[in-house]
Nucleic acid binder design. Structure first.
Lengths: 252, 252
DNA sequence: TAAAGTTTATTGGTAATACCAATATAAATT
DNA sequence: AATTTATATTGGTATTACCAATAAACTTTA
């Protein structure tokens, strides 16, 4: 009888610490906003050096799971944190020649597909969430008349993302939210200066939503395509120096 | 006259080191495979402590730009390195409940769109590269008859990616190559056990390619959709325990 | 002289200690 | 009660030492 031996590869102590902390986050024992034990306490609790703990924590910070605050502590990062996601920072700096249109082209691929999946899979709760986003946008519009908050645009897209029930898609949208959305937000402000444009976008969101509610994947994809194309064309007409610069960061 | 003051935010020394090293890589002064100065030499050259250098290098490692080799040195990582990209590792571990089908659904969105863009933008060089990939796959098939190398499948998809001329899409496909492709490669081996299936896939690749060469974006997207759907249906019919497990990594 | 074994050097990984710097909290002063 | 100062907490950097993995150089053996 043949037996096969597999080489034993020692795992770095700091990687083991990393995995313990990561698993605490994934399993919900450390929730967004929670403070992680201070480094000195962690090193005592884990029986490793503070250097090793710092290595592990640094890795979690780069991956966007934790954030350092000197003088305050280390905290589990909110997925929707206002601080820029470190991966988004890294990506945007590596693609300094990318344009807003490049970004929207990729979103075209991701989100048209998402709209179709959402149409096939959305639950009543998902539908309600989308209604909430549309109503928030409409309320903002009625109240202000212009210059509405571009976050409500992203919120609607995130609601569609959740409705896909696809964890890969959801992960990409959540973790690269900064990268996929923040870059265009300043441009959206320009778009939203004109009430006519807001009405257009609202109408487009409604069309996407109606197609999803009617469980029509092709129509949902088509409506999302028209929406993103509309935004793309607006930016072509109103081009300024690519504001992707704005998400290129000098601080983390 | 009003003057506005902006708060001065000190940048961490280790982040400054990180940026210097990253820029050397981006600017091509450090190329894939090159060894970075040993940590002790870097700390002398930069006038900072070895701890600070290690912090910066660790960040570059997590982002997939560098790799450590104890006893050997620190090297600029090849984008096509056989070692798994750290971000892909992190993503796959965070999405442990994701299935192969989830993965393919996201690729459906990205790659159908890419096929359409490639049809609009491919250069003659891109066309030649795709021809090369098809020929490599056909040659492999003629030579072996079955069990061809699944890398040639990914190569063709990468060639389409480059033809989009979209740096965001190209970045995603390059850096998440592990995540997007490696996970299905073992499944592709199963697919390629049957010569009939290889013929099917070759035919589908040819259809995508022909639509690109004919500059027909809609047909290219449609052909890519049929291809990915074929693969998706194959895996539904031949489901085994999700082999995404296989890309969940116990080592980095 | 080639192969095998041993020793040494190089480089990353961890540990311990000390101190700096940012921030929050407590105590003292006005 | 408000302001100022001192202290404590926590992350950031520095230094020194040693461990561990790997490669290179050297020595020994057949």
């Amino acid at each position: 009888m043949k037996t096969s031996l597999k080489p034993i590869k020692a795992k770095r102590i700091s990687d083991q610490v990393f995995e313990q902390l990561r698993d605490l986050i994934y399993q919900g024992e450390l929730r967004p906003g929670d403070q992680v034990l201070p480094e000195r306490d962690l090193s005592v609790a884990l029986g490793v050096s503070r250097t090793t703990v710092r290595n592990a924590i640094n890795k979690l910070v780069v991956l966007g799971l934790l954030e350092h605050k000197q003088g305050q502590g280390t905290f589990v990062r909110h997925p929707d944190a206002k601080t820029r996601h470190p991966l988004a920072v890294a990506m945007s700096l590596e693609m300094e020649e990318a344009t807003l249109e490049d970004m929207l082209e990729v979103r075209m691929g991701l989100e048209c597909n998402a709209a179709a999946l959402a149409a096939a899979r959305a639950t009543e709760e998902d539908i309600d969430r989308m209604i909430g986003c549309l109503e928030a946008m409409e309320a903002d519009f009625r109240q202000k008349g212009d210059n509405i908050n571009p976050n409500v645009d992203a919120d609607f897209h995130m609601a569609v993302a959740y409705a896909t029930k696809n964890p890969v898609h959801t992960y990409i949208m959540k973790n690269f939210h900064d990268f996929l959305f923040v870059g265009i937000q300043e441009n959206l402000r320009m778009l939203y200066e004109d009430p006519k444009n807001i009405e257009d976008v609202l109408e487009q969101h409604r069309k996407v939503f109606n197609a999803i509610r009617r469980r029509d994947p092709e129509m949902a994809a088509s409506a999302m395509k028209l929406h993103i194309r509309y935004v793309m064309l607006f930016f072509r007409d109103h081009s300024r120096r690519d504001l992707l610069d704005k998400i290129r960061v000098t601080e983390s």
